[in-house]
């Protein structure tokens, strides 16, 4: 059973904590040799990068937390015991260890569920190919490690956003062995399935998997991962002025900026130029100008020849 206490008053929380732990230790287990509720306290052990154990042959379950990544994650201001309630003592009591792991919805429920857009996420996820193939075996944690989770925001450059997002997919999709051991699914190598893509590696570096593999929506991210048959294969969907990427990866880029500055705009400065998507109005003006000048030249030349001919004929 999972308990969320964060909405209770601190005093009540403390009281329940004291009561529960007293009862727990009175009933079972060794007396704690140390306790604490700061992240630093927990990281004394869980900060060791190789902390973990082999669960089944060939699979190590890591119990380590990367201190830096956690601090910059969206949950970085929380203490460990905020979610892992009862783990503030060492040794951890067996009862606490045996409890169900905290879920996203342990906290993100009620108002929090609504405010953080979880209803839409759920709706999309329920329609996704992940849910369809793997059902309940596929949880939020399959992709999102709450200790390092950062929402897709606009504060990072586009290459960083792409790298962060694609790393999540690649945890499984590049590790075919893991796909087999974890989900019993055999897959073809990504290089083979993406062989049709010109400049494949450039695509992988500069756009997210999600940009082709999710259904369009209004937000930057959709959890509605499409089956591979429905993924984008038509170049023009991105390589055009009405690029699909405008409503996806570049959704937060100022549209006006793109319109006015053309391919010298800030998108380019972010290393995210997409052929066909952006236009340079100066180049347009120069081209039209050149065309007009050429036409005028041809006209003048013809006029000259006509006049010269007439003169010859007269004489």
């Amino acid at each position: 059973m999972t308990i969320s206490l964060d909405r209770w008053s601190p005093i009540l929380r403390l009281f329940v904590w004291a009561l529960l732990t007293t009862v727990a230790y009175a009933q079972e287990g060794p007396v704690p040799v140390s306790s604490g509720d700061t992240v630093e306290y927990c990281l004394r052990c869980h900060g060791m990068q190789t902390m973990g154990q082999i669960e089944t042959l060939g699979r190590i379950r890591s119990l380590a937390v990367d201190a830096e990544a956690f601090k910059s994650s969206t949950h970085g201001a929380k203490s460990c015991t905020f979610c892992h309630y009862g783990f503030g003592e060492f040794p951890h009591s067996e009862k606490v260890v045996a409890r169900r792991k905290p879920q996203c919805t342990s906290c993100h429920r009620g108002e929090r569920y609504e405010n953080w857009g979880f209803p839409a996420v759920k709706e999309e996820f329920d329609a996704s190919v992940h849910k369809a193939t793997l059902g309940d075996a596929f949880t939020c944690f399959a992709c999102h490690d709450p200790h390092t989770f950062e929402p897709s925001r606009d504060h990072r450059t586009i290459p960083l956003t792409v790298a962060y997002s694609n790393a999540i997919c690649m945890q499984c999709h590049q590790d075919r062995e893991r796909m087999v051991t974890r989900f019993a699914i055999a897959t073809a190598p990504l290089e083979a399935t993406h062989a049709f893509l010109p400049n494949r590696d450039v695509h992988w570096r500069t756009v997210r998997c999600l940009d082709c593999h999710t259904a369009p929506n209004e937000r930057m991210v959709s959890h509605h991962i499409l089956p591979k048959e429905e993924a984008v294969r038509n170049c023009v969907e991105c390589h055009s002025q009405e690029s699909r990427l405008m409503s996806k990866l570049y959704v937060h880029r100022v549209e006006e900026e793109r319109q006015t500055a053309g391919f010298l705009n800030s998108v380019v400065l972010n290393d995210a130029y997409v052929v066909g998507m952006t236009r340079n109005r100066y180049l347009d003006a120069v081209s039209i100008g050149l065309a007009i000048i050429t036409l005028i030249g041809i006209f003048l030349h013809a006029l000259g020849r006509y006049l010269a001919r007439r003169k010859v004929r007269k004489s």
């Binding site: 052990c45 869980h46 060791m48 990068q49 190789t50 902390m51 973990g52 154990q53 082999i54 190590i60 119990l63 380590a64 040794p91």
Partner: peptide, 21 residues
């Protein structure tokens, strides 16, 4: 032995943690 060589005993996860250092 992998990076999680200790497979039994109460201290196994902590001992495995030491492998990094």
């Amino acid at each position: 032995h992998s990076t999680a060589p200790h497979i039994s005993g109460t201290a196994r996860t902590l001992l495995n943690g030491h492998v990094a250092r």
